[in-house]
Amino acid sequence: MLKVDRIALIPHAPGLNVADVYRVAAAIQQQVLAHFARDWHLSAGVAVQSEPSDGVVPVFIVSDDLGGLAGFHMLKNGWPYAVVRYGPTWSVAASHEVLELIADPTGDRTALGNWSGGPCSYVVEVCDPCQLVNYPCNGVLVSDFCLPAYYEQNPPPGSQLSWCNAIKGPKQVLPGGTLAWITQTSQLMQATVDAAGVGRVATLGSYTPGVLGARAQLGALDQTYTRLSHLKLSSAERKALNEAKREATSRRRTVVKLFKDEMQRRLQVSNFQPIQGGGNAKPSDGPDVRPRARRMRSAQGPV
Rank of each mutant, 00 (worst) to 15 (best):
V4M: 01
R6M: 04
P14C: 11
V18Y: 07
V18I: 08
D20M: 14
Y22K: 04
V24Q: 06
V32Q: 09
L33K: 07
A37D: 13
R38S: 06
W40C: 10
L42P: 09
V46E: 00
V48I: 02
S50V: 05
P52D: 11
D54L: 06
V59Q: 00
F60C: 04
S63E: 14
D65S: 07
G67E: 05
G67P: 09
L69V: 08
G71W: 07
N77G: 12
V83M: 04
Y86S: 14
G87H: 06
G87F: 04
S91W: 04
L99H: 01
E100T: 00
D104R: 02
T106R: 09
A111I: 07
L112Q: 10
G113V: 09
N114R: 15
P119D: 12
P119M: 15
Y122R: 05
V126D: 00
C130V: 11
Y135R: 00
V140H: 08
L147N: 01
P148V: 02
N154F: 12
N154W: 11
P157Y: 13
P157T: 14
S159K: 13
S159E: 09
Q160V: 13
Q172Y: 09
P175N: 09
G177P: 06
T178Y: 01
A180V: 05
A180W: 02
A180L: 07
I182G: 00
Q184A: 06
Q187F: 05
T192R: 11
D194K: 10
V198N: 15
T203A: 13
Y207N: 03
Y207W: 14
G210A: 14
V211P: 08
A214H: 00
A216S: 03
Q217M: 01
Q217T: 01
G219W: 02
A220P: 10
D222P: 12
Q223Y: 15
Y225E: 02
T226G: 03
L228P: 02
S229K: 11
S234C: 01
E237I: 06
K239H: 15
K245M: 08
K245C: 11
R246P: 01
E247V: 05
A248N: 12
T249Q: 14
T249K: 13
R252W: 07
K260I: 11
K260Y: 04
K260S: 12
D261T: 14
D261F: 09
N271L: 04
F272W: 15
F272V: 02
I275Q: 10
G277Y: 14
G278K: 01
N280G: 14
K282N: 11
K282P: 11
S284Y: 09
D285I: 04
G286T: 12
G286D: 12
P287N: 07
A293M: 13
A293I: 06
R297L: 12
Q300W: 06
V303W: 03
